[in-house]
Design a protein around this nucleic acid. Structure first.
Length: 317
DNA sequence: TGAGATGATTAAAT
DNA sequence: ATTTAATCATCTCA
């Protein structure tokens, strides 16, 4: 009973020191009191033994199941220039899909590099901190040098996994870009502004006959960095839509004119829209077949027919 | 987020 | 075979 007391005390101190906020003075006191404890070396030994049997041994779990997947990511990143030497965009590709793809890829590369650097720095700082703290505490806590290294290699593994995640997300970004720019079923995209400018210029210049020949189509296609079929599509769409807008404008002008004429006739006869709505204007009243003045002249034959009809109606009722 | 713009696709016309 | 006209699907911009 008497022997357990110092051990209990030691353990209490140990728990306190493991869970407290780091405070240099308090820590120093605790250290001192533990070192002066005669049971210190032996208890520390026992605790270390226990710990190694229970904690660290179970940590050696399978880590390397996704080897080939990582290999694939690495290859992809290398091929698309995310890792490895930087490259510049070839000038003849500017304005094309290739160009845009490469530009976007550069952004991916940039953010990937930034993240990697951040993580490298953070990793190093973190490891250094952990190492120095544990070294310091190993004087009185049951922590051996090999345990520290093991722990550090474990955190290193964690960090590697984060790097894998980074690579993975970079790959995902690349795949997304490739889908967008190279997939046959990809969504439609607008041509570069410079391209539509070229096409529009030709269209306006040849507005009398906007039908480029095969040769011209090829030239335009080269200039605009699009296919001949796309040039054909563009002119097809442009012709029909141009025609439509012209027709619409004509219609609009017509409408304006009609309204203007109506307003003028209304004004010239001093007709107020409300008081005389529905009333014919004098021109209309004089039109044949419309006006109340347009009585049929007397016709005996027609009158006889009329009377016959009325008689028939009366007999039927 | 919705209306208009725009590139692609399709059937019918020439 | 090429073009028109309508329509689809997505993009763009306020």
């Amino acid at each position: 009973m008497e022997e357990r007391k110092p051990i209990q005390h030691f353990l209490d101190e140990l728990i306190k020191i493991s869970t407290m906020e780091p405070d240099v003075d308090v820590m120093a006191n605790l250290k001192q009191s533990m070192r002066s404890n005669p049971f210190y070396p032996v208890i520390r030994e026992v605790l270390i033994e226990q710990k190694e049997r229970t904690v660290l041994s179970t940590q050696m779990i399978k880590e390397e199941l996704i080897e080939d997947e990582e290999e694939r990511s690495n290859k992809m990143l290398e091929k698309e220039g995310i890792t490895g030497p930087d490259y510049s965009i070839s000038p003849e590709a500017i304005g094309s899909d290739q160009d845009e793809y490469r530009q976007k890829l550069k952004l991916v590369r940039k953010s990937f590099e930034e993240n990697m650097n951040n993580y490298a720095v953070n990793c190093r700082d973190f490891s250094e901190n952990i190492r120095s703290i544990l070294r310091e505490q190993s004087e009185f806590r049951p922590i051996t040098a090999t345990a520290i290294e093991k722990l550090l290699s474990m955190t290193g593994n964690k960090m590697n996994r984060i790097i894998k995640l980074l690579k993975h997300s970079a790959c995902a970004a690349i795949i997304h870009l490739q889908k967008r720019y190279f997939d046959a079923r990809r969504k439609r995209r607008n041509f570069a502004k410079s391209s539509t400018e070229i096409l529009n210029e030709y269209f306006i210049k040849n507005i009398e006959h906007p039908y480029p020949s095969e040769e011209v189509k090829q030239i335009l296609a080269a200039q605009c960095k699009i296919s001949v079929a796309q040039v054909s599509n563009w002119f097809g769409n442009k012709r029909i839509r141009y025609k439509k807008t012209v027709a619409k404008e004509k219609e609009a002008r017509h409408e304006v004119q009609k309204n203007a004429v109506a307003a003028m006739t209304a004004n010239s006869y001093g007709l107020l829209p409300n008081a005389f709505s529905g009333m014919m204007n004098p021109y209309q009243m004089m039109m044949p077949g419309v006006s109340a003045f347009n009585f049929p002249v007397y016709n005996p034959e027609m009158m006889a027919q009329y009377q016959q009809t009325m008689q028939n109606v009366n007999q039927a009722t």
